[in-house]
Amino acid sequence: ALEDLFTTLNRHIQASAFDNVVKFTDQILAIAPDDEDALRCKVVALIKNDHVEDALSAIKSSRKQLDDFHFFKAYCLYRQNKLDEALESLKRQARNDETMLLECQILYRLGKMDACIDIYQKLQNSKVDNMEINSVAALVMAGRSSE
């Protein structure tokens, strides 16, 4: 039953056994092709396993498009260094801490340091671990390290 598959799936998620997560999400999706939890688990597992090309394929081939797929797609494109496409995809996603962090990383790679720093400043109250490492990097690259 679906419940049993999700129980096993959860065990593999807790163990960070990403190949098995993909295997069991595929089993769930064979029964319930539009299951949002299974779709999301599959894409996350592929990303966590650094299989960004497969994650993009999973997003493209899914009949159901989830709210956060634009973010996942943008992240995969960023990993492939397709930075303009990644920004385009991010524009389709509601802005939140995650999307803003990714936007910063894309802008940094594009050399748009001032825009990057502006967003890090907006994120300052959101308590992202180690964010100062990236914001300092952007300040250094912008020649604004005295800030």
């Binding site: 999700f6 939890d37 490492i133 990097a137």
Partner: peptide, 21 residues
């Protein structure tokens, strides 16, 4: 060049599937 971390990767999380089990 200074070190940059992939903080976006850290933000990507599995959904809570407790209620599906």
């Amino acid at each position: 060049n200074p070190i940059v971390l992939d903080l976006a990767y850290n933000m990507i999380e599995f959904p809570d599937i407790e209620n599906r089990m």
